[in-house]
Amino acid sequence: MKPRNIILLLILAVILITIGVLVATTIDVSAILPIQASESAIYIDQLFRTMLGIAVVIFLIVEGGLIYAVFRFRRKRGETGDGAPIHGNTLLEVIWTLIPAIIVIVISIYSYQILTEIERPGVKPLVIEVIGKQFAWEFRYPDEEVTTTSLHLPIDREINLQITSEDVIHSFWVPEFRIKRDATPGQISELILRPTEAGTYRILCAELCGPGHAAMVTEVVIESKEEFDDWIEKQSNLAELPSSSPEGRRALFITQACGSCHTLDDANAVGIVGPSLNEIGAIAETRVPGLDAQNYITQSILQPNAYIVEGYTSNLMPNNYGERLTAEELQALVEYLLEQK
């Protein structure tokens, strides 16, 4: 090889490596990343940026070489001859076998280190049971005996989620935590995390679980220890409120997990699987001719498929509320919904 070409190659190598290092360290890639709300997110983003830096260099080498060849070695008009009869070059072939091999081994080792970091078991973690079911998430805080439909987590504390499913496979995913874990019936999968950024984020289902898959969304709230303690105390009191009081009726709506699928501002519910229940007390009587508001709501709870609001899907709502609710609870729930005007 001519000295001039060696120098050119070296300059090219320096430029490419500089670009790679810049991508891995300085260039802002936040446009394609959600915010970092947990320690795992920080680690995984580091890994991502490193891989992206390497990828950009390889991408530029191959695409650059391809584009260069397309312009440089284009056949001239009228030319019919062949190119040089080169069948290979052992040195080159060894180089382009070894270098990628080294790169993937380095990425593997680095990935293993990151994996160990993000899955390191915490000291005295807060254990929460996560249950996926078609098409809602349920969270149980075993120590406080609280069951909810949105997940609240204290900031900067080790969390251990024990994830399982009641029916088919779901997958618990919060993009701001990066990590996800499948909810598989018959087994408990563990997810370790440490929230670092207060805020409200979406919990999504990442494994196709049926017609309501896309709507299987709820929220995770990360808050200070004091706010979290207040919240959990309020939740544990809910169950004891008498259903004769307005607060008790609202508590019933919350503990029966209606808010997993329905939006209702009065109960801070944000579910989107089924129709919104804001102002249902006023709308109910207009839905089915011949049914007054009270009878319509009762029917919708006991036989959800009898009438489906336009734009929503049948067979999504469980049809066993007749067994799950006592007559008194059913009456209180209907009364509560009638009050939503």
């Binding site: 080169i86 993937v104 081994i105 990935s111």
Partner: peptide, 29 residues
Amino acid sequence: MITSMIIAVPTGIKIFSWLGTIWGGKLRF
């Protein structure tokens, strides 16, 4: 993870060999 990563090596060999094939040729598009 390691076996999956290693598949990149024979795949890379192909891509580079194809580049080597067009390099210095008389390309007709």
